[in-house]
Structure formats: C-alpha cells, structure tokens
Amino acid sequence: MVSQDWTGRTVEATVGPVAHGGHCVARVDGRVVFVRHALPGERVLARVTEDNGKSFCRADAVQVLAPSPDRVEPPCPVAGPGLCGGCDWQHASGPAQRELKARVVEEQLRRLAGLDVPVTVEPLSGGLLRWRTRVRFVADGDGNAGLRAHRSHRVVPLQDCPITVRPAVDAVLPHSWSEGDEIEATEDADGEVHVRRLPSRTRRQRPEQLRGGIAVQRAAGRDWKLDAHGFWQVHPQAADAFAQVVREWADASPGARAWDLYAGVGLFASVLAEQVGPKGRVLAVESGRRAVADGRANLAGMRQVRWRCGQVEHVLRQRTDTPQVVVLDPPRKGAGRVVVEAVATAGPDRVVYVACDPAALARDVAIFGEHGYRLDKLRAFDAFPMTHHVECVALLRRA
C-alpha cells in the first residue's frame, strides 16, 4: 500500500522496456512508473502526473539526461509533456517507432496467449506525416480548434496537426467555433474534404454537415461511396493493404460459404464474394444501419452477399451453417469470448482476424486456442505513425 501521493513529484529514472499504451516502464523506490515522452534505455527526470495510490503511477519525461540514439526532435511543437495527447512517439525515429510497436505486439501475445511470435511492423507508403485523412478536433473556450491533452478533457489549441492531411487541417483550424464543439474532417480519395460539426452537449442540436456527406474511397479494386464520417481506415493506404492480405489468407473456394463479421461497408465481403463466386454465399454482419445501407448499395451487383444488420453475437446465435472461412474486423475492444466461441463452434477452416489493438487480439487468439485453432501467420502494419497504435492481421487455422 502506497501512503504518499507522488503527484507533482519529479523523480530520476532509467527507462525500461516499452509497454502497451505509448509509454515505457521505469521503477522508482519499488514502484512502477509509466513514463511518456521517453525511450527505452534513457535516463530522465520524470514528473508524476497521476497517482491513484496503487503500485504504479504515471509520469512525463520533462528532461532527458542520457538520450537514446533513436531520439529525434518532434516535428510538432505541441508533442511534449502536458501538451497534445494525439501522438505518442514523435520523439522517436520511424524505424524505432515500428520496433517499439513490434515489441508491444510480441509482449501481448506472450503474456495473454502464451505464444512467442517474432513480429515485424511494416510501414505503409507516405511517411510519418500528413497521412491522417480523418480527424476530430474540439473547440476550447476561446473558439479555437485543437485536440485534448493526454488523459484529460483540456483542449490544446493547434495551429497545425502535422500528421493530418493539409486540406483537413485548413478546413477546421483557421476558423472559430463554439466552445465544446467537435468538428470532424475527412478527406476522401477524390481530394474532397467533408466537415461535420457536432455541437456541444450543452446545446442540443442535430449534427451540421458543412460540405456534403458522401465520401468516395478506393480499395480492393473498387470505388466506394459511403457516409463521409462513418468507418473507413484513417491511413489512405491501409484499406487496400489489409484487403490484399485478407484476399491471400482467406483463399475461399468457388461455391463456398464465408462470413465477414463487423463488415462495415463490405470491404472484405467484396473480396470474399469474388472468391466464392455467384454460386457461393457471403454473410456480412454489421451493427451500423448506415454502413449496411452503404454496403448494400456498393455491392448491389454481388448477389452472393447477404447482409444482416445487428450485433454480431446476436446474429451468430441464429446461424447453423458452416463457413469455410471467417473474416473478423472488430472494434478496438476485440471480438470477445462470446463471438470467438460462436465462430469456433461454426468450425471454419480458417479465420482471418484484423485487429487494431494487440491486447484484444492476443486475448482472442488465446480463446481460439482453447477451441483448437492455432495462430498460423501474423502481419503488423504501421497504419498510425507517430502514435502507439498498430494494426495486425492474423491467420488462425483449425488444428
């Protein structure tokens, strides 16, 4: 039991390994300190920012006494202690960022699934900056748009956001807004910027579309028209890259049955539909009504795709068919035990799991393992440069 609150205290620490969440682990006087703005091996002065009286506390590295050779100058002036919480690794070189993310994926698979899997995080084309095509800003009390500080509701006003595409930045940041407004900006594949203002909760109004609501995107050899502020991959290269991996690993046979769970607008369903052909069947399950409507419109020519709108766990309770392959692309929390067990009970030969959180992926891989599925392949992609987020695609096979 910790008797003294360390909040505000500055401690000297030698920084240890990276941990999931954009920080590294240090130990001071027997306590674990999660340190942001540091790199493994560095000696730093860290100011404690949060202490809930447990065995650990959180801190920011406010001075680097012995820097890592991987340390670089952050390209954003507000990517530092107490400032914008949007990025985690701007102080690390690109190769170092990808190495840190690889170590996190490996550690989560080892800790939660008992697997020792070597991981390489692959870069997507375009570099570390100006890749983010979808962003949500928030307005402060002076009407300036910005992003929130780490683990805080405090808004840090911005002059620029170097990881966001310039047209989306220019559509929002130069303008004045009402306090508490959230402003979403999306640049689509045609270069059109779509802006939506979500008024503060204190002013109950309907969302305001400023520049249209239908975005055009391109992936898997198709043009897609969808709600500009619905789900689509943030990095412009990500959707096509993931679709290529799904195509290779799903390898559905002509005439077979396949499931696309958490289908969005049907990106992976389109890949499966091409493989099974007109005599096969693809079940696409998605809970968002607008996404289902967009998916039906985009895949209207693929009659082998059958849509179900609803929670995946509820829809699967009613299924008795046996798919050859299942593709899973759940939200950050992962699929979870109920869905994983329902998929395993259906008995597909292969499961292709697209995951944006390595801890959720590792947990679900462990559950699949309980039901006779082994992790056969894994690829990881740096779809969110400068942040701690990493996208993984895993292939599980029935033993």
Rank of each mutant, 00 (worst) to 15 (best):
W6P: 01
W6A: 04
T7E: 12
R9F: 00
T10H: 05
V18Y: 02
G21Q: 08
C24N: 05
R43D: 11
R47S: 10
D60S: 01
V62W: 04
P67H: 03
E73R: 00
G80M: 13
G82W: 10
L83A: 15
C87S: 10
H91G: 07
A92K: 09
A92S: 11
A96F: 04
Q97C: 06
R98V: 07
E99G: 08
A113L: 04
A113S: 08
L124T: 12
G127A: 09
W131C: 10
G141V: 12
G141E: 15
D142W: 06
L147P: 00
A149D: 05
S152T: 07
D160S: 10
C161H: 11
P162Q: 13
V172N: 08
L198R: 15
S200K: 06
T202H: 15
E208S: 02
L210Y: 00
K225V: 08
D227N: 14
Q233H: 12
P236M: 01
A241H: 06
F242Q: 07
F242I: 15
V246L: 04
R247Y: 06
E248Q: 12
A250M: 09
G255Q: 06
D260T: 03
V265T: 15
F268K: 04
V271A: 05
L272H: 06
A273I: 00
A273Y: 00
G277L: 01
R281C: 00
V285Q: 13
G288T: 12
R296T: 13
N298V: 02
R308S: 14
R308A: 15
R317M: 03
R317P: 02
T322P: 02
V325E: 03
D329Q: 12
K333G: 07
V339D: 05
V340K: 06
V340S: 13
A346W: 04
R350Y: 08
V352E: 09
V354W: 01
P358T: 07
A359D: 03
V365G: 14
R374H: 13
R379N: 02
F381A: 12
M386H: 10
H389I: 00
C392Q: 08
R398W: 09
